[in-house]
Amino acid sequence: MKKKSSDILIIIPTFNESANISGLIERVKETYPGWDILVVNDASTDGSGGIAESTGKAFVINLPYNLGIGGSVQTGFKYARNKGYQIALQFDGDGQHKVSEIKKLVKPLKDGEADVVIGSRFNRKSDGFKTQYVRRIGIKIFEWFSFLLIRQKITDHTSGFRAYNRKVFCFLADNYPTDFPEPEVVILLGHNGFKMKEVFTQMLRRQGGASSIPLAKGPYYMIKVMLSMFMASIRSKIIKEEKI
């Protein structure tokens, strides 16, 4: 990978995905030959970074130590900002999202319909992703809670499949939460007046690795995330209303 060749950057945060990562890069590059890929290797211990580099089809950032998903994705935003990309996509490295659906997220951005597009498992009635009952309750609570806070209806707060335009990722490059960031980002963006849109995306069973939220940690996760969501909504706006 030598030079920036596109306006679109697909950011793939990875942690110990040596089994999937090269296949994923190949598939993404095959489907979207014109777009750039950035793998953010979050200090994997299984050589994922080296494997990603050896494909020669992606830029690879190797973080010096584990920062977690928030810190990795933010690194990607900083890269996209520094290199002048127009659209940045977050695509999880564990093979849960479908490569073929990336373009579904990019289209509304190109058409100017929204600043952020979130790939949601839920905003369609049928054939959605079957999650455990407990998880579904948690996700419903997020939906309700965030509507209360920002008055935008978002059905899938934990989705890590998202696309951002330049305005948003430049903002997030400086303001990205660290611990379980996804739901908080929704509030942060809604609160700062960005327009979000959800697109239905299918979700595959994860091929390797475990969920970042094990069930036993559920209650801790819910409380921590709802606290950060609430705090994000009462902080003073970082972006001031535009003067007309």
């Binding site: 830029f59 190797n62 973080l63 920062l67 690194t75």
Partner: peptide, 20 residues
């Protein structure tokens, strides 16, 4: 600390590309 680690990651990539 986080900002520093991110900066290091970005710089390592930059350096590698320059070397190449």
């Amino acid at each position: 600390n986080k900002t520093l680690a991110q900066e290091i990651g970005l710089m390592k990539l930059e350096m590698k590309m320059m070397k190449e």
